[in-house]
Design a protein around this nucleic acid. Structure first.
Lengths: 146, 146
DNA sequence: TTGCTTACTTTGATTATCAAAGTAAATGAG
DNA sequence: CTCATTTACTTTGATAATCAAAGTAAGCAA
C-alpha cells in the first residue's frame, strides 16, 4: 500500500476502534451508567425530533425487528424511550424519547459536537470543503457497496 | 449545533454505522464465510508482520484477556492464526497468521485500500495535508479522553 | 526458597443477537 | 363485504461474544 494511503488507513482504523470504547467509558462515568453504548446509539438514532417507526430505526441500526423490540423493551423499562401507537395504522409503533431520554440525547450530542470541533480545529473554512468532499466520496463508496 | 458541524457529524455517524455492516456483507460473499467481522478485525490486528503478544492484541481490540483467549482458540481451530510460545519468556504467547490467515489479511487490506482510495478521490495532494491534519486532531482528542 | 508479579487460560453467568413462528391490523381482489 | 395476503411488530428458543473472577504456570526479587 502506498505509504500515505496506509497512514490514513491506519489512522481511520485506530479512530474507528477507539471511539466506541471511549464513548463507553464516558458513559460509565456519567449519570447514565445504566446504559450500554448500544443503548445510547439506539437513543441517538431515535432522536428527539422525528418519531420514527420501529422499522426505520431497526434499519438504521442494522438490527432485525426482534432485536429492536428487545432493545426498546429495555429502554422503555429504564424510562428513556416511549412507544407511541400510530393512530393511522395501529400496527405501527412510533418511537419517542422521554425527558430522561432527551437529556441523554443532548449529552451524547454534546460529546459528538466536541469531537467534530476538535476534528476541525485549525482547519480553514475553504479546507472544510475538502473534508466534506472526502466524506461524500466515502459515503458514495459505501452506498455502492451496500 | 452549527449546521456545518452537524452535517459532518451526521456523515461520520452514518459512515461509522455502515462500515461494519458492509464489511460483514462483503465477508459473507467471499471465500472466508466462516469468519465474523470481529474475527476479521482480530486477524487484521494481529497483522502479517509483527508477531505481537496476546496482551498487545487484547489491548488494541479493547478485549479482556479471557475474551482474547477464546477468540484465538476459535481462529486457531479454523486455521487462520497460530500461537507461538516465546522462548525468552514461556508465559508469553506470540501471535502469527497461517497461510490462510495471510490470504484473509491481504483481502481485508485490499478492501481498506479501496475505501481510502475512494475517500481521497479528487483530493489534491496539498488537500491531503488538510485531511491528515484533521485526522491527527481527532486522534489527539481521543487520546485526551482515554 | 518463598512470596509477589505477570501472562495467559478456564469457568460460570450474562446479554445481544438472530431466524423463525406468532399475532394483529391493513389492504386488495373478487 | 369477505377472505387471502401482506405488513409491522412481538415472542420464542438457540447461539455466541463477552466479562469478572479464579486458576495455572513462569519469571523475578530478596
Amino acid at each position: 500500500m502506498e505509504k500515505r494511503v496506509k497512514t490514513i488507513n491506519d489512522s481511520l482504523v485506530r479512530i474507528y476502534g477507539d471511539i466506541l470504547w471511549i464513548e463507553e467509558n464516558e458513559l460509565r462515568q456519567s449519570r447514565f451508567k445504566d446504559l450500554t453504548i448500544k443503548d445510547m446509539h439506539a437513543i441517538s438514532a431515535i432522536t428527539m425530533y422525528d418519531q420514527k417507526t420501529a422499522s426505520q430505526v431497526a434499519k438504521e441500526l442494522h438490527l432485525t425487528p426482534g432485536t429492536l423490540t428487545s432493545t426498546i423493551d429495555r429502554l422503555e423499562k429504564k424510562d428513556y424511550v416511549k412507544r407511541i401507537r400510530s393512530n393511522n395504522d395501529r400496527r405501527v409503533v412510533r418511537l419517542g424519547l422521554t425527558k430522561k431520554g432527551r437529556l441523554m440525547y443532548r449529552a451524547h450530542d454534546a460529546f459528538h459536537r466536541m469531537m467534530v470541533d476538535s476534528f476541525l480545529k485549525d482547519v480553514e473554512p475553504d479546507e472544510i470543503k475538502t473534508i466534506e468532499k472526502a466524506l461524500r466520496n466515502l459515503e458514495n463508496f459505501l452506498r455502492e457497496h451496500s
